[in-house]
């Protein structure tokens, strides 16, 4: 009986100690990790979309609450005024699960500035080309938000990557979702952008 109690006590103390240590380190590194992810995962995609922006879109960002979720919007300043935002959405149905897509939208003209794939688990050389092949994502540039984005097989205008229709479909889905979110949150985005000018 004494041994039993000792076991329980030792394990409890160890687990408590371990838990609190991890919690402490987690809270210490949390901000840095978010920054690192921004810098290395979302950063390159955003910079590619806003390559002519005069500000650093990763620093100039704001959050908007959308139901339960909080979305981060990255602001692109063109010709002296903040006229575009970029944010991340996820398209279901890729070959290796969800495909993360950063979508940049011109707030003045309601059209896509550009898109870039962020996170994915697609097959290298096939679906992964969505991230590496610039000519695929370039098809989204300057498209209007009014129609949903579709690949040609589904009656749309996006030419799917050869051998990777599923991935291309997931990317289009993510873009369509982005346009939905944008239209829903547009008043709040414009509000935030106005404040940004000051």
């Amino acid at each position: 009986m004494r041994e039993m109690i000792k076991m329980v006590i030792v394990l409890t103390i160890l687990a408590t100690f371990s838990g609190s240590l991890l919690a402490a380190i987690h809270s210490k590194t949390k901000d840095r990790i978010t920054n690192q992810i921004l810098k290395f995962v979302k950063g390159p995609a955003i910079r590619k979309i806003f390559k002519e922006a005069s500000n650093d879109p990763i620093v100039d960002r704001f959050d908007i609450k959308d139901g339960d979720e909080t979305r981060s919007f990255f602001v692109g300043v063109f010709e002296g005024e903040p006229r575009a935002v970029a944010f991340e959405t996820f398209g279901k149905g890729g070959y290796g699960g969800e495909v993360g897509l950063m979508v940049g939208i011109d707030v003045k003209e309601d059209k896509v500035v550009g898109v870039g794939v962020t996170t994915h688990a697609e097959t290298p050389g096939m679906g992964a080309k969505a991230e590496t092949d610039p000519s695929f994502v370039a098809q989204f540039e300057d498209l209007s938000l009014e129609d949903p984005f579709k690949v040609t097989q589904d009656g749309g205008t996006i030419n799917a990557l050869s051998g990777a229709t599923l991935t291309s479909r997931a990317v289009s889905l993510a873009a369509t979702e982005a346009s939905g979110i944008y239209q829903k949150l547009k008043p709040q985005i414009e509000e935030k952008l106005k404040n940004f000018k000051k």
Partner: peptide
């Protein structure tokens, strides 16, 4: 107990690497 100890340090290593050498 060893696994708890090891897992703790591995998680610490993982967090630190995420923060400093992403």
């Amino acid at each position: 107990s060893y696994i708890i100890i090891i897992a703790t340090f591995v998680t610490i290593a993982e967090l630190l690497m995420q923060a400093y050498t992403y």
